[in-house]
């Protein structure tokens, strides 16, 4: 079985570091990025099954990442996390077919459950 690939984008380095540790433990292939621009550059090179992105970032923000990913790789699932939940942004993200929306602090278990649902797994390994 091929490993599912997950891209994590957050300007907080710890988010990527911790998510990678936890997700790799669960058998995912994880790449982390600190800004939207370099993440999009990477997406030019290869697709990912799941993109978990922070909403508020300098330069290319989470919504731009969402739109670009959906345009380029419609099958890729995008999950958004944000430090400051804002209903307007959430609605906008939903319109752009975001899979899930998590406010910080993120519960890793919930995030993983969401990823699993997105990938069609029934939970548990």
């Amino acid at each position: 079985m091929t490993k599912h690939s997950i891209m994590i984008i957050d300007d907080e380095k710890i988010v990527g570091d911790m998510a990678r540790l936890s997700l790799e433990q669960d058998g995912y292939e994880v790449e982390t990025f600190l800004d939207g621009r370099s993440a999009l550059d990477r997406l030019e090179v290869r697709p990912f099954d799941v993109v978990v992105t922070d909403l508020k970032m300098k330069g290319v923000d989470g919504l731009q990442v969402l739109r670009t990913v959906k345009k380029r790789h419609p099958k890729t699932v995008v999950i958004m996390i944000t430090a400051f939940a804002n209903l307007d942004v959430a609605i906008e993200a939903l319109r752009d077919d975001v899979h899930d929306f998590f406010p910080k602090p993120v519960k890793l278990k919930e995030l993983k459950a969401s990823i699993e649902r997105a990938l069609g797994k029934d939970g548990g390994h």
Binding site: E12, I14, V15, S22, F84, P103, K104, V106, L108
Partner: peptide, 25 residues
């Protein structure tokens, strides 16, 4: 208040993630 929520949430989230991951691994 909005700023505080955002600014505090980031390090709080970091601590939370460190703790969760720490327990897992």
């Amino acid at each position: 208040v909005a700023g505080v929520a955002h600014e505090l949430n980031n390090p709080l989230n970091n601590i939370s993630m460190i703790a969760q991951t720490y327990a897992e691994v």
